[in-house]
Computed example of a mutant assay.
Amino acid sequence: MKRYSYWLLIPLTFLLLECGANNGNSANRHHYDYQVKVVSITDGDTFRGLTEDRKEIRYRVHGIDAPERGQPFSRKSKQYLSDLIYNKTVGIIVEKEGDRYGRPVVWVYTPDGKDVSAEMIRAGMAWHYKDYSDDEKYASLEKEAKNDRVGIWSDPHPVMPSELRKNQRQTKNSARCLRRDRASWKGWSIPVQGRAVPTW
């Protein structure tokens, strides 16, 4: 009876070992759409990855908005993302095939299974991009980072990059309209006795 039990324990042991391994990288790997080798970091929410067929793709990390170049913490945010994933093989889950710039919007996971978006928000290196994500975990992590005044939240007046981009677009549109109005009235003065008098 003891010998019979012993032989039963051997396959059970291998099964447990396999399950334990699947709780690590292999489990996450099965849930990924695919994996890429990170070859460059653009900023705190954008990077380039090399696929298995050697195709280089520019990715946008889902759920976060990192400081733009020239904003406070832009370099630190880029470096933090680099520390997390640069020169590493990461898991990719596609949320959207392409944004307005043609970049796939993706969830990214480190080799040990960490959600990169969550890690960036937790460290105060990116905002939770609520316009495109209603993730409660991200919202909670941002609240904690804000309360602890870490990263971007140590700035007394942090400006979300999306707001900065919106203001820049409005400024450009206003300037474009002003140039167009000036061009349409160029060479004409205020009407005199019902006639528009040219100024040239």
Score class of each variant (00 low, 15 high):
1 M>V: 05
5 S>N: 04
6 Y>R: 02
6 Y>S: 09
8 L>K: 10
9 L>Y: 10
10 I>Q: 05
23 N>H: 05
25 N>K: 00
26 S>P: 00
28 N>D: 14
38 V>C: 11
48 R>F: 11
51 T>A: 08
53 D>M: 12
54 R>W: 08
54 R>M: 12
60 R>N: 07
62 H>I: 03
63 G>M: 07
65 D>A: 10
71 Q>F: 08
81 L>F: 07
88 K>P: 07
90 V>S: 03
92 I>K: 00
93 I>K: 13
93 I>R: 13
98 G>P: 01
101 Y>M: 13
103 R>D: 12
104 P>W: 03
110 T>Q: 01
120 M>N: 01
123 A>N: 00
123 A>G: 01
126 A>S: 14
128 H>R: 01
129 Y>C: 14
130 K>R: 14
134 D>G: 10
137 K>H: 08
144 E>I: 10
145 A>P: 05
145 A>D: 09
146 K>C: 03
153 W>D: 14
154 S>E: 06
155 D>M: 12
159 V>F: 02
160 M>Q: 09
161 P>L: 10
161 P>M: 07
163 E>M: 00
166 K>G: 11
167 N>T: 13
171 T>G: 11
175 A>D: 15
176 R>M: 12
178 L>F: 01
180 R>N: 15
183 A>Y: 12
183 A>G: 13
184 S>A: 15
192 V>F: 05
192 V>R: 06
193 Q>D: 15
194 G>T: 04
195 R>N: 10
195 R>G: 02
195 R>Y: 05
199 T>D: 08
200 W>D: 11
